[in-house]
Amino acid sequence: MTTNTYQDYRTLSFERSGRILKIIIDSPESRNAVDDALHTDLARVFHEVNDDAATDVVILTGVGRWFCAGGDMTWFQDLIDAPQRWHHMIVDAKRIIDSLLALEKPIIARVNGAAAGLGASIALLCDMVVAVDTAVIGDPHVKMGLVAGDGGAIIWPQLVGFARAKEMLLTGRMLSAKEAAAIGLINYAVPAEELDAKTDALANELAMGATLAIRWTKTVMNLELRRISDLLTEAALAYETKTNFSEDHQEAVRAFVEKRQPKFTGR
């Protein structure tokens, strides 16, 4: 059942089943890539969900064959060319992380396809992750000449430890969903025909549980993540700002558009 509660979102759509709300990243023409519209919507939506008295459980997913395929290249170039847009984006980046960690209601990421960069961060900052086994997940910021500033440096070490997190974030390598489940990065990697059943079973189990006990147990567990986020996020975004205006980042964007390997110089 669709819902009319959430208005004026450009890139998100919503469905409701009882007290379970599904948030759908809905930009299929761009593989659900992050652009200004999606970034702005994500900075707002989790605050609204927290205040939504009709919702006890949230599912976050993407439309089509993608969850969220990372940053849109046109947007990346715009953020290089217009520094004022970058500085506005940084404010929203912190809002996304803060509001997702402050959300009291349990949220399940239904990863139906590729989750890269911010797409991976928002999935991993959810409480549980169920992915189709053909999906890939990773944070390739460094491959774009950027610091992993929008949540990756916060959540990856907490889930898989520093050794694995450093390997993945410093190489920008993508993992298959099966690999991610094997190392504890996500909860489940399931065949496509089982994705809805597994996600819905978890959501229904939560919806039928003791709502306040579930919410506040989550709240307590997230206190440490919020403390870490408060410690790291501003520094991470500041370093990402420096790399946004680096020659290497411009080269990475140009190389992606030209379909070639970037030639990094360390500048």
Rank of each mutant, 00 (worst) to 15 (best):
G117T: 02
R164N: 13
V130D: 12
A114P: 11
A116D: 12
G138S: 05
I122K: 02
M168N: 14
A163V: 11
S121W: 03
W156E: 06
F162R: 11
E167D: 14
C126M: 10
P140S: 13
M168Y: 14
I122A: 11
I97M: 00
R110W: 08
N112H: 05
S121P: 04
M144T: 03
D150F: 01
G161S: 06
A131Q: 09
A102G: 06
V147S: 06
G119I: 01
L124A: 08
V142D: 04
Q158G: 07
A116W: 15
G119H: 10
G113V: 14
L125T: 00
I137Y: 12
P140F: 09
A163L: 08
I122E: 10
L118I: 15
I108H: 03
E167V: 06
L118A: 14
G161V: 06
A148C: 08
A135G: 11
A153Y: 02
K105T: 01
G152F: 03
A123N: 08
A153P: 00
L101C: 09
D150Y: 01
M144N: 11
A135S: 15
K166F: 10
D133S: 14
G149C: 09
D150L: 05
G152A: 13
E167L: 11
A120C: 15
V136L: 09
Q158K: 13
A114D: 14
K105F: 03
A102Q: 13
P106K: 00
